[in-house]
Amino acid sequence: MIVIKSAQYEVYRQDIERLQDHKSVVKGSPLRNLDPYLDDGGLLRVGGRILTGDLLAGSNGPIIIPKKSHVASLLVKYYHQKCRHQGRHITEGGVRSAGYWIMGAKRLVSSVLNSCITCRKLRRKPEIQKMGNLPDFRCKPSPPFTYVGVDTFGPWEVSARKTRGGVANSKRWAILFTCLASRAVHIELVDEMTSSAFINSLRRFVAIRGKVTEFHSDRGTNFVGSTDALNINTINVESQPVRKFMVENGSTWIFNPPYASHMGGIWERIIGTARRILNAIIMESKKLLTHDVLNTFMYETCAIINSRPLANVSIDPTEPSVLSPSVLLTQKTEVDYGPFEAVDLKDMYRTSWKHTQVLANQFWKR
């Protein structure tokens, strides 16, 4: 009570002295509409014909608290924590129910809630992260698969051979190569996660797609040689055979910084798409999953991913074509092939007769 009386006297000194002399408050005072009075203890309370205080608490009227005093902030914080960090309406109701009338309470409660760390964690909207500039290899004009991102995913269990007890299964992994400029995809299947199998997949990839200037990947245990001490059978890019292959082909392997998985989003996103396509193909297929079947599914997955539009599909009738990585690789579109329909002998004769009539008409016109 002493602290509250001191805060009231510091702000409303003139009004308290006039009330002690049994006079009304100053005409321009912010307390005039509250009809204040002094209780037996000398506290400034809200008056009126009907007392609006909490009668169960034994008070005759809410105690007036100046809004700029430190006491008002402490009271709002206390009752805000007491109501388990609820909104402004519940917090303000808790302060009023406790028998306190804070001047300008709505603005003060909003200010306290805005600076509350717990409320920010619970209800604050996510901030919009400002993206950094794209790397040079993403914007540099270059042939497809000049700058390549590499990652592995899997495994899948395939039927290797038949035995007396059933079928022996083995695992297969996939090496994903994605062009960082054209966004084209190439997937190679490997039967083990070793440096030799990885070199063979690199040789097949380079033989089909051409030489690569830079390989980019994360610093996962699949590529970094930190698992030698653990005797884990993984791909080691830092091993001597892989280094020799890089030197002979004039390629450079660049790792992303540690704990920067967001920098590999260009291939992580494609791996998610490839997994969804493979799950659909395997679920619809009724064939026994062998190495050859899985390898075929991988190439079909590449074809589907490479046929995706690189930009939004235009609704302009003057631009009906869709730009995709497959168009950049093969210079062909689906329109070039035409529809595949069932053609029998009658249709062939009918087509040839129409073609003969067209040629005859052109001849007689000449």
Score class of each variant (00 low, 15 high):
169 N>V: 10
353 W>T: 14
185 V>E: 02
221 T>W: 12
185 V>K: 14
81 Q>N: 14
133 N>I: 13
108 L>V: 03
183 R>C: 00
5 K>T: 06
98 A>H: 09
262 H>R: 04
47 G>R: 06
75 L>T: 07
131 M>T: 04
40 D>W: 00
211 K>I: 04
166 G>N: 08
344 D>V: 02
34 L>K: 01
12 Y>N: 03
28 G>Y: 01
271 I>G: 10
158 V>Y: 03
203 R>M: 06
248 E>L: 11
55 L>N: 13
131 M>L: 09
334 E>N: 08
206 V>F: 00
185 V>H: 03
3 V>K: 00
76 V>W: 13
85 H>Q: 01
339 P>L: 05
173 W>D: 10
98 A>S: 00
42 G>N: 06
263 M>R: 12
37 Y>T: 06
307 S>D: 12
297 F>W: 13
346 K>P: 11
156 W>A: 09
37 Y>H: 00
52 T>V: 10
211 K>R: 07
360 A>P: 04
206 V>K: 00
226 S>L: 13
69 S>A: 05
272 G>S: 12
319 E>H: 10
155 P>F: 02
254 I>T: 15
38 L>M: 05
327 V>G: 04
324 S>W: 05
242 V>I: 03
318 T>I: 13
50 I>D: 11
217 S>T: 06
293 V>W: 08
42 G>A: 07
138 R>E: 07
123 R>E: 06
355 H>G: 05
285 S>Q: 02
138 R>W: 09
158 V>N: 04
16 I>G: 06
117 I>K: 11
125 K>P: 08
244 K>P: 08
270 I>G: 09
242 V>A: 06
290 T>K: 07
9 Y>R: 15
274 A>I: 03
